[in-house]
Amino acid sequence: MTPANASATATEPVRASTHAPASERSPQAAPAPHAAAVPGRARQLTLVLGGARSGKSHFAEQMAADHAAATGGPVTYIATARHGQDSTDEEMEVRIALHRARRPAEWGLVEAPLHLADALYTHATHDGCILVDCVTLWLNNLLFLDARSYPEHGLVTPPAAFTEEIDALLSALPTLPGHVILVSNEIGFGVVPMGAITRFYVDELGRLNQKLAAAADRVRLLVAGIPVSVKGADPA
């Protein structure tokens, strides 16, 4: 399955590694985690949820722009969509172009289709804001790593990197300085899918969203373009 939300690329991105899973990367090659935010510098984690075309990406982008205007700090956009020169997915290319066109030119860009925790460790700063769009595609990339296929019925066994990268993300989030905004789809409101792999994906994204929401300072659910406060107050 392909989740119904597109991350985007902008000018000339910094591409995070997309090959070795966490268990195969040497300790020397992995970025060192940041220390917790220094006193007086608020660490913020916001989760923005919503269905397809709910307005969640636009809302998250506005949050990042507001943070930059208030603090003067940089914004780094971490795109999880796979994007290459040989891409034949015209629909995805159009989605990427739309995201690129509406983002401020001064925002930094990092492509991290697999190793999201590494990208966060590397680019989080005390005065900055990181916007990850989106967790949905990132989980899809991990599940279908190396064009992995699954049976229509029966148990689903994802690649080892699936669990390793999720664990790495959940470990990273409490340590990151600055403001981190995560965008993810809420896809559990519909009917139960018939195929085993689709059911597995819906279940795993739902479980991950719960864990991200528990770690977040604020959770906003977008419904028809209107943000609904689920957890936490807006910053003063």
Rank of each mutant, 00 (worst) to 15 (best):
M1T: 05
S7E: 06
T11W: 06
T11C: 05
T11K: 15
E12W: 05
S17K: 11
S17C: 10
E24M: 14
A30C: 07
A30K: 15
P31K: 04
P33E: 08
H34E: 12
H34A: 13
A36T: 13
A37Y: 08
A37W: 02
A37M: 02
G40E: 10
A42Q: 11
T46W: 11
L47Y: 09
L49M: 12
L49E: 06
S54L: 05
Q62L: 13
M63Q: 14
A65C: 02
D66T: 07
D66Q: 13
A68C: 10
V75R: 09
T76K: 02
I78W: 10
T80C: 09
R82C: 00
H83P: 01
G84L: 06
T88H: 07
D89I: 00
E93I: 02
A97E: 15
L98T: 14
L98G: 01
H99T: 00
R103H: 09
A105L: 13
G108N: 12
V110N: 08
L114H: 08
A119Y: 02
A119W: 02
Y121S: 06
C129F: 01
C134F: 03
W138P: 04
L143K: 03
A147N: 15
A147W: 05
A168I: 10
L169M: 02
L169E: 04
S171N: 13
V183P: 05
F189L: 14
G195T: 12
A196R: 06
T198D: 15
R199V: 12
V202D: 05
V202Q: 14
Q210L: 11
L212E: 11
A213E: 06
A213C: 08
A215V: 04
V219K: 01
L221T: 06
L222W: 01
V223D: 07
I226M: 13
V228K: 13
V230F: 02
P235M: 00
A236N: 12
